[in-house]
Design a protein around this nucleic acid. Sequence first.
DNA 1: ATGCACCCTGTAGCAACTACAGGGTCAAGC
DNA 2: GCTTGACCCTGTAGTTGCTACAGGGTGCAT
Lengths: 136, 136
Amino acid sequence: MKIGELSRVTGTNIETIRYYERIGLLPAPDRTAANYRSYGDAHRSRLSFVRHSRELGFTIEEIRSLLDLSDDPARDCGEADRIATAHLEQVEAKIAQLGLLRDELTRIVGRCRGGVAADCRVIEALGDHSRCGSQH
Amino acid sequence: MKIGELSRVTGTNIETIRYYERIGLLPAPDRTAANYRSYGDAHRSRLSFVRHSRELGFTIEEIRSLLDLSDDPARDCGEADRIATAHLEQVEAKIAQLGLLRDELTRIVGRCRGGVAADCRVIEALGDHSRCGSQH
DNA sequence: ATGCACCCTGTAGCAACTACAGGGTCAAGC
DNA sequence: GCTTGACCCTGTAGTTGCTACAGGGTGCAT
C-alpha cells in the first residue's frame, strides 16, 4: 500500500510517517517505479505499535527500546516491563501534580465579582505565590 | 539589581529571563554604563507573576493576555476569570485522560513472567490497541 | 596583572511533530 | 491527447518554552 492508505488505516499523519522513517523508527520501505513508498503488513503493524505507544505517552526513545526488544525475540522481556513500569510511575506522578494544580486553580477562579482588573482577585492570586496551599 | 540577582530571587534561569524579554513578556530594563540589565521591583513582581502562572500551566500567550489585563486596571476582570476557568477545565480534562492512561498501563505492566521478548505480554499489549478498555 | 565571577549577543539545540514550497506521477474524463 | 485533480516526492522551516553554548566584555579582589 502507498503512504496515503497507511496513513488512513493507522490514523497517522503522512508527514509523521515520513518523520518516523527519517529518525529510524520505521524501516525505509521499498519504492515503486515512480519512487512512491510501498508498505506491507509488517510496516502497518509496526506503525500501529508506535502510535499506540505514543498515545500511551511513551517517548520516541522508549518506543525505540521497546521495538529493539520485539525485534529480537530471544531477549529478556523484563526490560519491557521495566520501561512500562517506570512510565506508569511517571503518569501517576503527573496525575498527582495536576491534582494539586487543579486545587489551586479552583481556589483562584470564580472569585471574580465583575469588577475591574485593578481589583481582580484572579490576577492578584497569580502574582502572589505565598498564599498557595502547596508547593508546585 | 542585575540579572543574576533577579534570577536568584525569582528562581528563574538567567537565559529564561532574557528569553522573556526577547518575546516581549518582560519589558526591556534600563542598562548600566557597562550595558548590564538593571531591574527594579516592578520587574521582579512581573516576573514572579509570569513564573507562578507558568507553574500553574498557563501558556505564554495566556500569560500575555493576563498581563495585558493587569497593565490596564480599568479593564473588565471577567476576561481573567474566563482564561483561568478555561485553563482549569483543560487541567481537569488532562487529569481524566491520564487516569484512563494509568488504568491501561496498569493493565499492561506486571504481566511479565520473566520469559523472552517473543512471549512478552507487555510488547503484545502495546501492539494491540483492540484490547484497550477505553479510547485514547 | 591576573584570576574569577559575572554580564553581553547571537545562534543552535531539544521533543515530536506539522506545514509549507516546489516539484513529479497517474488515472479519468473531455 | 490534453487537462484536471488526487496523490506522491524532497527539503526546509516553523511550533512551544525554554536551555546551552561560543566568543567576547566588565568589575573587583589579591
